[in-house]
Amino acid sequence: MSFAFKILTTGDRAVAVEFGAAIDEKINARVHLLARFFAGERPCPGIVDIVPTYRSLSLIFDPFVLSKKELCGLIETYIAANRDMFAEASFTRVSHTVKIPVCYGGEFGPDLAAVALHSGLSEDEVVNIHSAVKYKVYMLGFLPGFPYLGGLDERIACPRLKTPRTNVPAGSVGIAASQTGVYPVDSPGGWQLIGRTPQRIFDKNRGKPFMVQPGDMIEFVPVGKEEYNRLLAETAVKKC
């Protein structure tokens, strides 16, 4: 299988290596393959940070230590030396399925009715469709630990709210266009909220602050309010 990439200039201290212009598992796998090369043990001094996204890897560098030219050379050499690996790239962290309990509707999902109305389905059908799929984590971004997921059933896709809420509680599960996701922290937001999880996908005080990582699969498991409250209490105890 062949593949293409281009290195784009994004200011005087960053470049982006773009592997395509689509949300696609192969393209995303190449992004994370290159990310692994630059993550952890840095291959050279001057790499400050990396941002793997759906279809590109941004590399932020210290221009006083490493020149853009040197960095571009390093990227090209690495990809050229590993062409077969990049061509065949696949990226699923085997057996990393994260189950996220969600209490749908009611006070936790104030927009479930609106999503149902927009889809021409009942609320139960929306919940069934939303919780039937395993979603792939393509990238983290936006806010700490927020997973960008692929795989939302188009039947329940729904536009963002016209006027965003000034505060969406952490744990809220929402839909925006063809995306679904979980709010990691309290934040303003315009997603249609259909439920809430008692689990914290980001907790700075936890040994592992981020619950999911790119390559993981996420499954939403419907729970009732009692179960939600029991799990919430458990989460609170664990924190102490």
Binding site: A14, V51, T53, M139, G141, F142
Partner: peptide, 30 residues
């Protein structure tokens, strides 16, 4: 566009055509 990295200094333009300059607290992707 398909969401990708945002860094401080980036000048992006939403549909209104009025630019926004991203600063240090900006979200990591947009």
């Amino acid at each position: 566009i398909i969401s990708d990295a945002l860094i401080s200094g980036g000048v992006q333009a939403p549909g209104s055509g009025q630019p926004i300059i991203m600063l240090n607290d900006c979200q990591t992707t947009g």
